[in-house]
């Protein structure tokens, strides 16, 4: 059990609501679905796999951004592929 976690300040539900709303609206406004995002992710990874070895467990690709939607990706590279 995370003892110190008990003392961590939880965000208030109003802030949680705003955050969730922003994310859901990014998808609504762009007309995307989670499935579409998954397809985009796997295609990006396919291309990258030609050049680098990726740490797939700690990979993060998402759409967010406070000033309009942006595709934000954090893709840890294990090593470059040598040809």
């Amino acid at each position: 059990m995370d003892f110190f976690g008990l003392f961590k300040r939880q965000p208030k539900s109003g802030a949680i609501a705003k955050n969730r709303l922003q994310l859901v609206l990014i998808q609504d406004r762009m007309n995307t679905t989670p499935e579409l995002l998954e397809m985009l992710k796997s295609d990006i990874l396919k291309v990258l796999a030609n050049y680098v070895e990726i740490d797939e467990d700690s990979l993060d690709i998402d759409i967010n951004g406070s000033e309009g939607p942006a595709l934000v990706a954090n893709i840890p590279i294990k090593s470059w592929k040598t040809r």
């Binding site: 208030k12 539900s13 109003g14 802030a15 609501a17 705003k18 709303l21």
Partner: peptide, 10 residues
């Protein structure tokens, strides 16, 4: 005021 509802600005 308690932060449990989105504000008007939100």
């Amino acid at each position: 005021r308690r932060g449990e509802m989105m504000t008007i600005e939100d």
